[in-house]
């Protein structure tokens, strides 16, 4: 039990640090939100408007410590305040708009990537030294060397623009009404295909290599040897004995990956005009929207923390060795 308690204490400290950094970092940026808003009008707004804007946005020059206190008090009530870039929409409302798209896109992409990557890794280990093993893992590693956004732009340029196979952006066509019907779902899938493909291609190699290498390690273990000696079929040993054990490390990184879902696809979203959190975060940064930035960052960091807690708990259950240290 001590293990869990000490872990929880650690997470409490990490959580506080996250919340505090989240408060400080946006405020270290040069400029202020009212000026940024004013500047968007490039001379079309009267100079006297500045004061009215400050009032409207609820900006004040309160001391940092007081702002910090208000921020903590607001958080405790689950309040994130009003966004500035989309004023007067509450931060939670703005996040809600992007959240579904981001979680949908990255969630599907991560799932595909895990299943395909692990499968390919296992197959490469099964055919260790064969032709598949010689070609696929290096090819996947090569793809992973590209940064997300670069891969995204290449795919967009060739598959989208040059060959016109896929739409060039947005989550669905401008004229299709969201709903549970074949047409819309088809529209959704065709719009999500390229961004999803980008994320899958870029993250495949991690899963593949973890799986392949642990498989090879496990295959040399004594209990696998014993299973061979008992005369079990190679397929049975591979699937029921080796793979089950080799999946453990992948499972923990899957937990981590779930945490990164929220943040994972920011650049991909920007390239494909996907209406997720990525674009909103970009807009928040450009317009010095502290509350929205804080909301999104908090979302990202807390989901990573949460995923870590889950993974730790899972380890506690799955791996008896973590329970030993009392």
């Amino acid at each position: 039990m001590n293990f869990l308690l000490s872990k929880m204490g650690l997470y409490a400290v990490a959580g506080w640090a996250v919340i505090t950094l989240n408060f400080l970092i946006p405020r270290l940026m040069p400029g202020d939100p009212a000026s940024a808003l004013f500047a968007r009008f490039k001379g079309k707004l009267k100079p006297d408007a500045m004061e009215a804007l400050r009032q409207q946005l609820g900006l004040n020059d309160a001391p940092l410590l007081k702002q910090y206190w208000d921020y903590i008090a607001q958080l405790a009530q689950g309040e994130f305040g009003l966004s500035i870039a989309f004023h007067p929409e509450p931060v939670l409302g703005v996040i809600k708009i992007g959240f579904i798209w981001t979680v949908g896109l990255s969630g599907v992409a991560v799932l595909i990537s895990v299943v395909v990557g692990t499968g390919l890794g296992a197959y490469a280990a099964w055919r260790q030294g064969g032709r598949f093993d010689a070609i696929v893992p290096p090819a996947v590693a090569f793809l992973a060397a590209f940064p997300y956004f670069f891969l995204a732009m290449i795919l967009l340029f060739f598959l989208g623009l040059e060959w016109g196979l896929f739409p060039l952006g947005m989550a669905y066509g401008p004229y299709s009404a969201p709903g549970f019907n074949g047409g819309f779902i088809y529209d959704l899938v065709s719009h999500g295909f390229l961004p999803c493909l980008t994320i899958v291609l870029a993250s495949l190699s991690g899963w593949l290599f973890v799986m392949r290498n642990t498989m090879i390690g496990v295959m040399g273990d004594e209990y696998v040897c014993l299973a061979h000696a008992k005369g079990l079929s190679r397929r049975r040993i591979f699937v029921a004995y080796a793979m089950r054990n080799a999946l453990l490390p992948s499972l923990t990184s899957f937990g981590m990956a779930l945490g990164f879902i929220v943040s994972g696809a920011l650049l991909t979203e920007v390239v494909f005009s996907y209406p997720g959190l990525g674009y909103l975060l970009l807009k928040a940064i450009l317009s010095q929207d502290y509350p929205l930035m804080q909301g999104i960052f908090l979302m990202i960091t807390l989901s990573v923390l949460l995923a870590n807690i889950l993974v730790d708990a899972l380890y506690y259950v799955l791996d008896p060795r973590t329970r030993g240290g009392r």
Binding site: F41, F86, G93, P275, Y279
Partner: peptide, 15 residues
């Protein structure tokens, strides 16, 4: 230009 419309028809709001 935006990726998502946010419903605000308040003529006094800069957004």
């Amino acid at each position: 230009l935006t990726s998502a419309w946010i419903r605000n028809f308040n003529p006094f709001s800069p957004n």
